[in-house]
């Protein structure tokens, strides 16, 4: 591997932040390994290991489907599938947001000890959450079979939606990671907000039967991200409003996040 001379000065900090993001991507071996290591540790000595994710997701869906059925009204699709998809996406986004608020602080051991791109830890966290979502999605597969729900070609629209979701997750973690490393209240604030937002996001209920709450729910970015994946899988089509919202949100957020990172990357090590 050729080694180039590395020059560090105060003036190069912004370029270094940009190259950090890219260098992190190229070192994919390290963040996939770290993510798998995290999961191995979390389910260490558990006989069925990661299948606990599937099992607890399954139990949650069964109970919630029975309890919240009455909020569904009359639907053209299965409420259980609606609920399972919504909760899967919520769980992923919630994981990304809460991990993001800790992403650099919890990696201080590495950041202070080894010269490596800081974005590594963002990618690590995304992979970890994706793997968990993958295990949960086994339940979706079983549910689709059980309910006899046939997917139409329109369901393929969920694929670009997932790409946008992962892209957004990256900048969300980057931004929250920086801000919460500097201001330690942010992590607690975010946990509180996420707990409230869960009830304001159409996961357990369907907007059309919730009156005012249903009308305002699409101000909430989480609701729109859920719809661009969930609607195509349920109905084969998706309202273009959700896509426009999501694209604007994603692009604007990415710009803000990268700018914040450019100005703060070199200081993060002192904050953690």
């Amino acid at each position: 591997m050729p080694i180039q001379a590395r020059v560090l000065t105060g003036e190069h900090e912004k370029q270094q932040a940009l190259s950090d993001l890219w260098k992190g991507v190229t070192q994919w071996r390290i963040w996939t390994a770290l993510a798998m290591e995290d999961l191995r540790r979390r389910y260490h000595r558990a006989a069925i290991g990661l299948l606990w994710v599937t099992l607890s997701f399954c139990a949650f869906i069964v109970v919630k489907a029975l309890v919240f059925n009455r909020f569904a009204g009359s639907l053209e699709f299965s409420f259980a599938i609606y609920l399972a998809l919504g909760f899967l996406l919520w769980q992923f986004m919630n994981g990304v947001v809460t991990d993001g608020a800790d992403v650099f602080v919890s990696a201080s051991n590495w950041i202070k000890g080894v010269p490596m791109p800081l974005s590594t830890f963002v990618y690590q966290s995304i992979v970890r959450n994706l793997v968990v979502a993958g295990y949960s999605s086994l339940v979706i597969g079983m549910l689709l079979l059980y309910e006899g729900h046939a997917l139409s070609w329109g369901a393929l629209l969920a694929l670009p939606a997932l790409v946008v979701l992962v892209f957004t997750s990256i900048w969300v973690e980057l931004l929250l990671g920086v801000v919460s490393a500097r201001y330690r209240d942010v992590k607690h604030l975010i946990q509180t907000i996420m707990r409230i937002l869960f009830f304001l996001t159409p996961v357990l209920w369907v907007p059309s039967v919730m009156g005012r709450l249903g009308e305002y729910t699409y101000w909430n970015p989480f609701a729109n991200f859920i719809e661009i994946v969930r609607m195509p899988l349920l109905t084969g089509s998706v309202d273009s409003f959700h896509w426009i919202y999501v694209c604007l949100f994603s692009v604007l957020g990415a710009v803000v996040s990268v700018i914040v990172f450019m100005f703060s990357r070199h200081r993060i090590v002192y904050w953690i």
């Binding site: 080694i3 180039q4 001379a5 000065t9 270094q16 051991n109 950041i111 202070k112 000890g113």
Partner: peptide, 25 residues
């Protein structure tokens, strides 16, 4: 390259190996 200089410049050519305090890295 873990800390970036507030002023001045650091230039390094070569692969860097580090061993800092306990448990880091």
């Amino acid at each position: 390259g873990i800390y970036s200089p507030t002023a001045g410049s650091v230039s390094v050519e070569g692969r860097v190996g580090t061993m800092f305090s306990t448990g880091l890295g």
